[in-house]
């Protein structure tokens, strides 16, 4: 079974839940920017949680189905059409061979996940089908899909029509989006005034935000505690002697615009990181458009761990709702 890309959209890629275990070698985890939405899409069509889907950002692709299958689109509110007739998001529907899936203008959020029963069946690379485009790894030939690509789809049982994720379980960022942050290793490098300002200031998503990192602007220039820069750290006070970066870590080059490292980020470098967005809130970043308003909220480790638990529970609630 296959599906054919008629129009590719902006940067539509094959993604699953990623390839953990290679970050220390500089290969990022990759995978869906909104993992909850990808998981829900798979549940809707009867796939395993981590089956590969198409991730599209800001604008949808046009896709022609090569066989009958069950389809679901989750994540952003991007109007879904099958042969021009509207279909609901977060809801499974049957398609026939030859039918065409297309999309309207984005209403809310940033990324959609298109799941098909059987999952996208491109060859796994290092245990994952996720596309890491700068590394030309995984997905469809290691790159975003292009017009004319014929994408393999796995075999599946006939999925069921009209299953829908309840509204309350469709997690999405608020306005402003509130991203919870755990201060980290280099937090002490900021003056108390800048530490407070980071949480008090109103930020917006900068247009440069992508799968590697989300950049934010609009807050005050950060000030650093004076020190004699250690050997190898350079003269800019936002620099350190190189260190490891975690998924979600927040670097602030020049103390001006924070960048939250996301699924396709580099694994280390010479910028101080003031802390990290907690894992439970990384899905929300994947749904932020340029210019979206954002507030950072300080949490401690206990709060971060309980938020992680709540997110896992939400995924289980979706599973239960679809039984």
């Amino acid at each position: 079974m296959t599906l054919e890309i008629v129009k590719p959209g902006l940067a539509t890629t094959v993604q699953d839940l990623g390839r953990p275990g290679y970050f220390h070698l500089g290969i990022p985890e990759g995978g869906a920017m909104d993992r909850l939405a990808l998981t829900a899409a798979n549940m809707l069509v009867g796939n395993e949680d981590g089956a590969a889907c198409l991730e599209a950002v800001f604008m949808g692709p046009e896709v022609k189905f090569g066989a009958d299958m069950t389809v679901a689109v989750t994540g952003a509110e991007l109007p879904v059409m099958l042969d021009g007739a509207p279909r609901d998001t977060w809801t499974s529907f049957r398609v026939k061979a030859g039918q065409v899936l297309s999309f309207g203008f984005l209403k809310e959020g940033a990324r959609i996940y298109i799941a098909v029963s059987g999952g996208i069946d491109t060859p796994p690379a290092l245990g994952s089908r996720s596309t890491y485009a700068i590394g030309a790894l995984g997905g469809f030939e290691g790159r975003p899909v292009a017009a004319g690509d014929v994408i393999p789809v796995g075999k599946a049982m006939e999925g069921s029509d009209g299953r829908s994720v309840p509204q309350a379980l469709r997690r999405r960022p608020g306005k402003p989006a509130v991203l919870r942050v755990l201060p980290g290793l280099y937090w002490h490098r900021l003056t108390e005034k800048s530490q407070n300002a980071f949480f008090d200031d109103d930020w917006t998503v900068a247009p440069e935000a992508d799968r590697m990192g989300y950049r934010f602007r609009g807050g005050q220039q950060m000030e650093f505690v004076a020190r004699e820069q250690p050997f190898g750290a350079g003269s800019d006070p936002s620099n350190i002697v190189d260190g490891c970066y975690s998924y979600g870590s927040i670097q602030v080059p020049g103390g001006l615009e924070p960048i939250v490292l996301h699924r396709d980020a580099v694994s280390g470098g010479g910028y101080f990181t003031l802390g990290a967005v907690i894992s439970a809130d990384m899905d929300l970043i994947g749904q932020l458009q340029p210019n979206a308003p954002v507030k950072f909220e300080r949490v401690d480790m206990d709060q971060a761990l309980s938020a992680r638990k709540v997110r896992k529970e939400t995924i289980e609630q979706i599973r239960q709702a679809l039984l």
Binding site: F58, F105, P207, P290
Partner: peptide
């Protein structure tokens, strides 16, 4: 003519 996506025009 509408913008197909968010960004800077």
């Amino acid at each position: 003519i509408q913008s197909p996506l968010p960004g800077t025009f």
